[in-house]
Design a protein around this nucleic acid. Sequence first.
DNA 1: CTGAAAGCGCTAACAA
DNA 2: TTGTTAGCGCTTTCAG
Lengths: 335, 335
Amino acid sequence: MKKVDIAHVAKAARVSTTTVSRVINRVPTVSAENQRRVQSAIRQLGYRPNPSAQRLASGKAKPTLGLIIPRFEGIFHSHYALQVVKGCGIAAERLRCDLLLHVANGKASDLPPSVNGVIFADLFGCEELLDRIVDDRLPVVVLNHYLEELPVTCVAIDNRTAAEHVVAYLVRLGHRDIATITGDLKVQAGLDRLDGFMKAMKARQLPVRDEYVRFGDFGLPSARAAAEALLALKERPTAIFVASDDMALETINVALEKRLRVPEELSIVGFDDIPSAATARVPLTTVRQPLSEMGRRGLELLFQQINSKPRHPTKLLLPTELIERGSCQQTWLDR
Amino acid sequence: MKKVDIAHVAKAARVSTTTVSRVINRVPTVSAENQRRVQSAIRQLGYRPNPSAQRLASGKAKPTLGLIIPRFEGIFHSHYALQVVKGCGIAAERLRCDLLLHVANGKASDLPPSVNGVIFADLFGCEELLDRIVDDRLPVVVLNHYLEELPVTCVAIDNRTAAEHVVAYLVRLGHRDIATITGDLKVQAGLDRLDGFMKAMKARQLPVRDEYVRFGDFGLPSARAAAEALLALKERPTAIFVASDDMALETINVALEKRLRVPEELSIVGFDDIPSAATARVPLTTVRQPLSEMGRRGLELLFQQINSKPRHPTKLLLPTELIERGSCQQTWLDR
DNA sequence: CTGAAAGCGCTAACAA
DNA sequence: TTGTTAGCGCTTTCAG
């Protein structure tokens, strides 16, 4: 164990700690001679300034915000986390604050690091941790999960409205026999997308038969199973709203394998607008979510929260955008 | 601006700062009465402990490592960054150190945050920053870029050997007319994969004609152009080694559009083993890179470096693995 | 250009 | 159970 501090360096260089500090901080008013001596002493001793002490002493306000990423296996294989990290990263840079990444331990009472505030990339599995943080009155923002009950700022995607728009779009194209492949309904986004779908269908008095609602879990295998079931139906739907692009792409795969033409015989709408949606063999019509913006906004909100008197928590629902590409087509009611 | 410190709280609660500290740190030996008073005072004043001071005073060694992510547009659309973040995140958690994410500013002399060491997710565009860090003798690790000259620890993928293995595999299947679509040659990985390819071909005295080497840049459009050029050739190759899965998948798209059957008429090998490689319509034979392990190892090395006397920088080259799936097939030399 | 000394805000003995 | 008193390692006036 080494414990070299600025005093050791000062002694070795035969100068004061002040001068050492000056050299470290590149203050110009240091004689060349002293500069040399100090630097060589630093090198000799392998000295590294203590960041905490530097901050404390210099009173640098630069806050540190903790970005908590749930340790959820899928999350690392998704387009999602990276976009959120990107958005947070950009905001953190602009706001000149540090972003501390924390892959959540799962075990809830897992220490929240020494930070001025915390932002959850997703609530998934972190409910207990959040409770404790709220209890501690630590500034916090939750992304991608709209919490009605808790007095917590959250920024999420308006999944319900987005799903309604999808239905509206499909109906406008003449579709009436519309099916859906859901995401994991334990995840709020999954549930909301289904809700919005059902609501919009009901609003148009379009019956949704049970076989037209297939439950997936955002995973490819589940999508494949659902798609196969759907396409094996005697009364095949003319359009399918799939709760994620990954699953939608897989659904297209299944359809093509069955020699169904997309979009001529089957229209498909996805959700996410992942990069490959645009370049897939059938370019996917899908819902774009402002993921990185969600991260950015969330972080900004957290920052405000830290730098101001306690206020009402903000609840933000970000709008989505339907991106029309080639996987949907007009249909006629000629069946 | 607010400046409530522990003393204010103590005064308001009519106790000592020690007691306040105890409440904050959940030390059990505090009377219920005081506990209440302190908590209400904290709430009233909107008090938040200063993390730097907490650390400094408690002497908690918990170091903070900076993970620098180059602000390179593509990097956020790749499987790459997230895997690295994941690996680093996991290691950081095990080592109980904090991970400070820093999206590099591009502008090089961009302040390195107050950290004990720095790890670059990729060197791309951060050369100047690295120079300064090396100059400052700040512990540093560079990922995905093997630096011969600089005395810097780096952990990278053995791209060259991997490419050689691909050639060996293809030759074993009977291919002789093997083409390649390269990545961006300004990126080390791109260059090395081409080098390995050429070297292995030469070693087998298989001539590589110029038209068989097409230059891509890891982007889909470049891959499409390259693939089209290659497949329009009079003497079409029987196999193509593509420097990334994204590009390989696009190459397959092009081939299928031209009604070429894969792998019957054309074998394709990719590089990366991205998730969709396994589930693509033609499951892709590809090279798996231990990306998240690279992050983990890198971070561990950084950690060691911080906690020990200066030593030789380590240079680690991680081995890859060829994953055989359905995009390659035996061929006969009957042309 | 340099150094002495006073904190930065908090925690950790040690007493009481 | 509580308070007193030193520091943690560094920066920063402010004289010199």
